[in-house]
Write a protein that binds this DNA or RNA. Sequence first.
DNA 1: GTGGTCTAGACCACA
DNA 2: GTGGTCTAGACCACT
Lengths: 133, 133, 133, 133
Amino acid sequence: MAELELKKLEFSLDPKSGVPFYKQIILQVEMAIADKRLTNGEQLPTVRSLAVDLKINPNTVARAYNEMEIRGIVMTQQGTGTFISDKKVEMDAVKREQILGEISRSFISKAGSYGFTLEEIIRYLQDIGQEVT
Amino acid sequence: MAELELKKLEFSLDPKSGVPFYKQIILQVEMAIADKRLTNGEQLPTVRSLAVDLKINPNTVARAYNEMEIRGIVMTQQGTGTFISDKKVEMDAVKREQILGEISRSFISKAGSYGFTLEEIIRYLQDIGQEVT
Amino acid sequence: MAELELKKLEFSLDPKSGVPFYKQIILQVEMAIADKRLTNGEQLPTVRSLAVDLKINPNTVARAYNEMEIRGIVMTQQGTGTFISDKKVEMDAVKREQILGEISRSFISKAGSYGFTLEEIIRYLQDIGQEVT
Amino acid sequence: MAELELKKLEFSLDPKSGVPFYKQIILQVEMAIADKRLTNGEQLPTVRSLAVDLKINPNTVARAYNEMEIRGIVMTQQGTGTFISDKKVEMDAVKREQILGEISRSFISKAGSYGFTLEEIIRYLQDIGQEVT
DNA sequence: GTGGTCTAGACCACA
DNA sequence: GTGGTCTAGACCACT
């Protein structure tokens, strides 16, 4: 019975983390995309329903959605809803690899300045992968 | 004498992380101490040189040093410099993992918003690891 | 005497245009950049001062600035101010031309569907250039 | 008979312009009439075909057609189609220029935010004009 | 019903 | 002083 409701997105906020609510929402959507729990064209919860769900002000949800729209992560249609954008596919493999290289390098060096080794990092990411699955 | 300056600390700041610069500096020093990359009595860069290095306001570096002095992590000797004091820095595995988690999640999110999956990311990092080895 | 105050940015809003205030602000900044009236590293008016100036709510100005920050047009530093970003220079000539080509083509086809010819468009843009100078 | 279908109307929508789709359609039809690209009695695409073409909801096309019918610009014949009526569309130079101004400014802004100057833009468009000639 | 815009005002963190 | 976050609530436009 609970079987057909796999992959359902569950948002949750941690008020103590210090991370702004709207950023937590963005992070969770982005993580869901990276995990394939959200894919092209899928609809996000409506602004109001998510606001009720998380017990926060609709403006805060709207802000998160708005920022994602600017970044091209989602598309929004007046009076219809907000959907995962599908335009990100337009990149060729070379460009993709370039971008991944860039952000990876910057991530590794950042982690490095905190004393983490590449191995540690990879192990950690693999753990995250396990959790989700 | 100055010849064996191995283990040189490399500071790096991420303006987009939302974490204030002064906190990023403190964290990196703490991690370095916990890692033994910095030990008792070692000198930190001067406020000015680090400010130039990181291209930020000297006040910001000063604030970081100040706060560390208050916490007893470093000692400042007027006219001489700032040195690691002998106070133990408690940096347990949990705290370390928190930091790694934070920067990892932000990295995954960024990659995710470009359409990369977690698997792709891990594979890429592993490739990098191979190259270096 | 008025000679040294050339290039000063003057913001103005048209409430009747139907264009949201925050978008009008963004448009004016972008136009100013295209006209070289604003260049790399220059500081924008503070959120509060511009709000007073335009007699609108500071949140509205903040929203405009925020959106420009997300798009990479400006950089903002806590407690310091908002500045025209300087990272846009990192593009090589080829990439630049590609982008210009893309947005130009889309503009021309859009104008075309309203019945404007390329000549008309160019003449119009030249007129705009005259006005500003 | 169907052979001389020159002057075919090309609709194009810009979701990012903020102008509602139905208004964009009306504007484009009006401009075409003023330009004589559409004349008395000519048939518009069916609601469904245009909706498919533009990848939008048929309701949105219907709304545009509806509003044009109310204004007397087109006439709908049940089961046959929608046709340009003989009402004159007042589309003076001022209104034309307004539209051109709007889309031009938005284009310049976009280019400006990529660091292109107005001069560069004009030069590029002139080059395109040369190529075609 | 959907999202978009704007105001007003509070509180916080950084310099 | 600067910008950042969040709330509450109003009003509008699109479907």
